[in-house]
Design a binder for these strands. Structure first.
Lengths: 266, 266
DNA sequence: CGGACGCATTGACATCTCTCAAACTCTGCG
DNA sequence: CGCAGAGTTTGAGAGATGTCAATGCGTCCG
């Protein structure tokens, strides 16, 4: 019954008459025709913090593109707890094209704008637009890679290592998201978008251990805890060493990030 | 230089003049035309245990479909250790369509037959065959789901829970693979396709702890260790409880599996 | 047949993490 | 301003895991 675009039932509001699809970097290079068709079948939705965008086990009538804000994907365990399996930010896609029900729930972590593509016309357009098809395919492949990176982080035996890996992911993947990363004077501030409890579930631990791991990293000098949910990265290399050097040279350097972030502010 | 189909350099041997593609359940329902075209651009390769099928960081000239045997995907860490991020069995696909280099290595765990589709004609065919395109898309979506299921298993705090989850995955996903699952008289035998050391890497632990966890499960009565790499599932429900009931009702029952496996033997 | 080798197991101990409980911080509200 | 509530932090003890070393088991090969 709730398998429709949640514009009425879900409490989401239309933000504009149509999405500014070309702002999404992944879609920007599509042919004009395709973009026009996308705009026609797209409905912009707006979600407040904590709202459910899509329910696990349902088959929403839309494929979502995140336009702004942060969403989280989570699975519901038998005991009712929620387990986060990924975060979605600007440019990310969710929904199962051509396929059955979702097996994750999607919930907004911060106020979010989502472009909802009606399923049937979107799938039809996929068949006619090889370029769009390719964008969707690559998006899913990227998501798969990120899930595998997570697997490596989660397989670290110590909480401190997993937490450091999590911070590295935040730095490398969410650099373009203003809500999460900001440049300070020679340092980088990271906003932790989820609570200690959720972070504990995500990293396979408990809130207390997460807290201790944060302070252990701080004692090591690689980070500083400005507020419980605001971390200052002081030594990216040290953090990377703690994380276990997961991907040799594949992580962003402090200098690179600072340059990028300051460049954005100008 | 090694980015070609490894028929000469890699030591892989052609097994037949062409692949029996229609045997792959995922491809069986494709139109005859598409299957014929696939057969034309496909080269069957055969790998012995331990051979490298594709190297991380390279962009192989082919997209692989596993025809038989077991392969493992792994990432190389900075210290040279290999970290397994997934197993591939009959019907699975690997390779990055339309995209850049692989970020996993693929290595055969048991003697394996792989159908190697030449990249360029395969991508060309994808554009002309919506059915094939859809098969590829769904395959990747399934792989993504499996990776997320792994994340939940890996986030369990105790080794015994993660190991139980691993065994559940083996039961639910590899039921059709003769190398892994066999029905006994009222019980199910699972062949563990990787060593304790690799299993420890996969589950974020150490070989010694894995060994202890196996024996703890055996003491609990849910499994029996017939040989180090041959486990008898005695109580699927108990195993599921230990695993933490990750997906309520989403796991196979003992009865279902036994029925399925015996049906296959007849 | 025996010995070397790889792998799995077992034991002992240090370390880390979980658990439970209490104190603390921040925010919103009367 | 004080209070209540949620979330975070800290502390102490029990439990689980990592670590190191030694032993057991099977296979391969001389």
């Amino acid at each position: 019954m709730e398998e429709n675009i949640p514009d009425n039932q879900g409490g989401a509001r239309h933000s504009r008459s149509n999405c500014e699809l070309s702002q999404l970097s992944q879609l920007a290079e599509l042919p004009v025709d395709t973009l026009k068709e996308l705009a026609r079948i797209c409905r912009p939705l707006r979600f407040q913090t904590g709202q459910i965008v899509a329910h696990e086990g349902e088959r929403p009538d839309f494929i979502g593109f995140v336009h702004s804000g942060i969403l989280r994907m989570q699975k519901t365990l038998e005991d009712g707890r929620q387990h986060i399996v990924g975060l979605l930010v600007e440019g990310d896609m969710f929904g199962r094209v051509f396929d059955g029900p979702l097996n994750v729930s999607v919930e907004s972590v911060a106020d979010a704008e989502v472009c909802a593509m009606q399923r049937a016309p979107f799938e039809s357009l996929l068949l006619r637009s090889p370029e769009l098809d390719r964008v969707v395919l690559l998006n899913i492949l990227d998501e798969l890679d990120r899930a595998r990176d997570w697997m490596i982080i989660l397989a670290k035996p110590k909480v401190k290592e997993r937490l450091a890996g999590f911070l590295m992911v935040l730095c490398s993947r969410f650099a373009g998201v203003d809500h999460i990363l900001r440049a300070g004077s020679g340092t980088i501030d990271v906003k932790i978008p989820i609570s200690r409890t959720d972070l504990a579930h995500l990293l396979g631990s408990r809130p207390e251990s997460i807290s201790r791991a944060f302070h252990a990293l701080a004692d090591g000098g690689s980070i500083a805890i400005k507020k419980p949910d605001l971390i200052e990265i002081q030594d990216m290399d040290a953090l990377c060493v703690v994380a276990g050097d997961e991907d040799a040279g594949n992580h962003p350097t402090m200098e690179h990030l600072l340059e990028f972030l300051h460049g954005r502010d100008d």
